[in-house]
Each structure stands twice: as C-alpha cells, then as structure tokens.
Design a protein around this nucleic acid. Structure first.
Lengths: 216, 216
DNA sequence: GTCTATAGCAGGATAGAC
DNA sequence: GTCTATCCTGCTATAGAC
C-alpha cells in the first residue's frame, strides 16, 4: 500500500516521495537520486519541476505539510463545534485527539511531526512559513477559545504558557516514540494512544486550573 | 570566548568543534573539512583519531554529551538532597531548574537539547546509548523519588506518563525556542527562563494531583 | 515533459613524507 | 602525531536529444 501510485504525475510522485524521505532522514541525508528513484522518474525531473533540491524541500512544506496541518486543524474545529465548546476539557481533548489520533494515518502523523521537529530544532526558510501560516493562527484560535473559559484574573502570559505546554506534550508524544516506548514498555497502538489523549487532557486541565500560588 | 582553545589537544578540539557543528546542522550537513578547519587541525586528523566521521559522531556523545547529561543530573540530585525531598513541587522544581537554568551555559544547553532531539526524531546508534546510560536511569530515579509521595492508588503507568509530561515540557521549551519566542514575544533571558521553571512546576504539580476522573 | 549523458565539483578516506 | 597530496566515489545541476 504505497502512497505514490503510477497514476500520479511525476511531479506529484516526487513531492510524495520527497516528503517521506526528508522526514525520515533530513534534507542533507537525502539525495536527489534517491528521490527520483523512489518516484520512479528521471534524475533530471527534480530540477525541471522544482528548479533545485532546496526549492523542492520548500514545496514539500507548501504543497504537502501545510495542507495536512490544515486538515488536523479542521478536525479540531469540527470536534469543538460538535460539542458546546464551553468546557476546557473539551477543547484540550479535541486538540490532543486531533494530533494523536485525528484524521492522519499513523505514517502521516509521524512524518508530519518529524518534519516539524526538524524545522523547530534547526530552522530553515520553511519554519517562517510554518509559523506564519499554521502555528501562529492555530495557537491564536486555541487561545481565543480558551480565554473566555478562564477566570478573570488569568493573565495573558499564563494562558500562553499553558497552551504551549499542551502542544509540547502532544508534539513530544508524537515524535519521541522510541524513548517513550523504552520507558513505558508500551507500543503505539490505538489503545495506548487513547491513554495518551486521556492523560494529556487530565494533566492539562488540572494544570490550567492550578491555584496560581505554589507552596514555598 | 571560544570553547576550543589552542592549549587543548587536536583530538579534544575536534570533539569540541564537532559537537557544536553536529548540534547546529546535523550529521550529514557537516563536513569533516569544516570540522578540522574549525578545530584548526589537519583534515586527516579525524580519520587518524576516530577512524571515520560516523565514529567521531558517536564519540561526541560518549565523551561530551553523556558527561554533560550527568552534570545536569548531578545538579538535580544536589538540589533535591539540599531540601527535604518530601514535596512533589520540590522535585519537579529541581528537575525544571536543572534543565532550564542548571549548570550548563546557555550555548551548552541549546546544543545539548538539539543533539538529543535529533536523535529522538531520527535515531542512530547513539540513541540506544543515550537511553541506556542517561534517559532510563534518570527517569527511574525521578520515578523512585516521586512514587512515595503519591497516593496509594496511583498506578505505575500514570506516574510514568506524568514524568514524561514534565520532561516533554522541559525539553520542548529548550529546543523550540524559535516558535516559543514568536508566540509569546519573549526573549530567552534569565527572567523568562525563571518564569518557565515556575510555570512548569505549577502546571505539573497540579497535573500530578489531578483527580483521576474527568468530568464527562 | 521526459529522457540520457556528462560536466563540474565536493565529499570521505588514505598513502606516505616528516 | 601531524602534515600534504591525492584518490575516487557520489553529488547537484545542466545540456541537448527525443
């Protein structure tokens, strides 16, 4: 069950295979030869369609990564709209579910997380695009939905740190599968992912409701 | 203020510069020529001292990354021993502080996180080493310290997920500086890092104390 | 638009002088 | 142990036939 099929155009096949390979190995570890071999097309095709390797990498984000991120966000929005959206737990659950179970296949989800992680840890031109088009707007939407559910005294900064914390868990559980498996002894099957969603919701909701002042 | 000074041996200088470059750019994006140029030594030195480029990468982890991780852990242990170690907040604070402020310089901390992230998202031989020698033992120590402070009914799995969540925040705030800056508008100065530690402690302690059952 | 062939160069690694 | 010189593979990118 390969993602790239013969009926796609060479250009599409290149984008598909390039995304898989870039996600698995990173930009520099992947060669144009490898991409065109996987895409069953000619070596020159990358340069013909995308100019050069670097631009192909950018196009992977523009034409594959960003649309997929938008599907994840749409899934989040749909879930939230389906409920009454008046509960913090509901919003966090929609978020964790969209990322960890959501509309993507398991392979897609892993690729998606790996590409993002690589950009965050080692930014290229693509990161600006991601932040501008996906991360910022999504973050603002979540903040906008949560703010009215918070107590008055809740400062803006605390809300932001809370949301980042939820994202940090969701992202971490997605990309750090190897150490998580080793530490928990669990496989990433549907059952475990369900437990993760549940955990993130409970942990975060408690964290959101924290009493502001810790005991010194 | 360069880390590598003339009085170090070429072998040490290579290790120092290689770590910096591998952290910044990743294994494949760095060339042996670049490393030896930075280390002000000859091109052949890498092969003479380390056999080949890949083995140099492993040695960076063995001789630089792991010892540094042990310094972080030692800082955590020292802080915990200094208190009475009977408070969850105290342990989480020691953890967050060790990672986000701790004994490392800011450059070291960033490099350290980047190397780890890269291994987690795209494992090589080095990751087994890290998990075996650092991640597992540290994780077990934290679990061992926290378990007696939990209520009886606390299952093992919930404790593990809690600890992973703390790590996820600590790690995320360390490596995802670019998007965090963009979203919060804050710079990573001492003041902001202090706020982050504080936030992680409050959020986590609340999360740990969560009531088990969420409202449906 | 797709191919073959190849230019042109940078990479890791080694041989052998000192 | 450290150097210079060099091998040779494999890369990106392009020219030009079809």
């Amino acid at each position: 069950m390969k993602q790239t099929e013969k009926n796609d155009s060479p250009k599409d096949r290149i984008l598909n295979e390039a995304e898989i390979l870039f996600a698995e190995k990173g930009f520099h570890a992947v060669t144009v030869r490898e991409i065109t071999r996987s895409a069953k097309c000619n070596l020159a095709a990358v340069n013909y369609h995308f100019g050069n390797k670097e631009n192909l990498y950018l196009e992977v984000f523009k034409q594959r990564w960003i649309p997929r991120a938008k599907r994840v966000r749409a899934a989040f929005q749909k879930t939230v709209s389906a409920g009454n959206g008046q509960e913090i737990a509901e919003i966090v659950h929609a978020l964790a579910h969209a990322f960890l179970k959501g509309p993507l296949t398991d392979d897609e989800r892993l690729r998606h997380a790996q590409l993002m992680i690589r950009e965050m840890a080692m930014p290229t031109l693509a990161l600006d695009l991601l932040i501008e088009e996906v991360i910022q707007p999504f973050f603002r939407e979540v903040a906008g939905r949560l703010r009215p559910l918070m107590e008055e005294a809740f400062e803006k900064e605390r809300l932001m740190l809370n949301i980042i914390s939820v994202f940090s868990m969701v992202i971490y559980f997605n990309f750090a599968r190897v150490p998580v498996r080793r530490v928990t002894g669990e496989e990433y099957d549907e059952n475990f992912k369900e437990k993760l969603v549940d955990h993130i919701v409970k942990f975060s909701v408690a964290g959101f409701g924290m009493n502001g002042e810790e005991k010194v």
